[in-house]
Write a protein that binds this DNA or RNA. Structure first.
Lengths: 114, 114
DNA sequence: ATTATAGTTAACCATATAGTTAAATATATA
DNA sequence: TATATATTTAACTATATGGTTAACTATAAT
């Protein structure tokens, strides 16, 4: 009835996003790849806490890490957000008019072609 | 620095979505408006638990309720999912090619017009 | 008036979450 | 080698979450 793999994945992703700190981290990473300490700067919390937040983002596959010496560099991962977009698209007609508008335009343009 | 109103709102929405039961409820509601007991059918849990889940969805403004006699009818609310789509759109280039594809098509079509 | 139905609320429990501080690990620098 | 830096891990705490059962409220049906 339900796909529990995909289900658990979505749980992890949505849960990771349900926190302002982690969303802010994602925002930072959308600007530039950053180290753990760089990610920590805007937040009034211990590095240990920051470390945990990053782990939550990693578990959700929203963030990837590459270690070079003692420095851990984090970057956004495309894949995971795609999954939630896919989920959202199922309920598109309930909230978004953006596609409709685009598709309408496209249709009009196509019509003119012929 | 951060908009805490919108922030709390996003927290509530993402949190509401981070649970398979609640996502399944949203799916059901995308098919048809349903009562609390109808929503409860597929789930192996008490009505009290179902009631709580619905409340979480309501707090996130994902679901609205209208009471008629003793029956509570629930329906999807467009607004909230729009907010998360808006958030996602900020990071669009990191995950979604859908708009690109659509827009490319549109451009091609427009070009042919002239 | 009694009973059945639809749903909520309260009290409780186990586990998860988000934070802390302190100690540990690993690497770079003096 | 000794020390400083980058980060994780462990142990702990307070609160939130997701579930339970039992009692309650409100409405409908007999």
């Amino acid at each position: 009835m339900v796909n529990y793999n995909n289900d658990e994945e979505l749980n992890a992703i949505f849960h990771a996003l349900a926190d302002s700190t982690r969303r802010e981290m994602i925002h930072m990473l959308s600007q530039k790849e950053s180290t753990v300490s760089e990610l920590a700067v805007p937040f009034d919390m211990s590095l240990a806490a920051v470390s945990k937040h990053i782990k939550v983002l990693e578990r959700a596959n929203l963030v990837e890490r590459s270690v070079k010496g003692r420095v851990h560099s984090c970057r956004l991962n495309a894949g995971s957000l795609e999954k939630i977009t896919a989920w959202l698209n199922m309920y598109e007609r309930f909230w978004s008019k953006r596609f409709d508008v685009l598709e309408e335009e496209l249709l009009k343009a196509k019509k003119k072609e012929h």
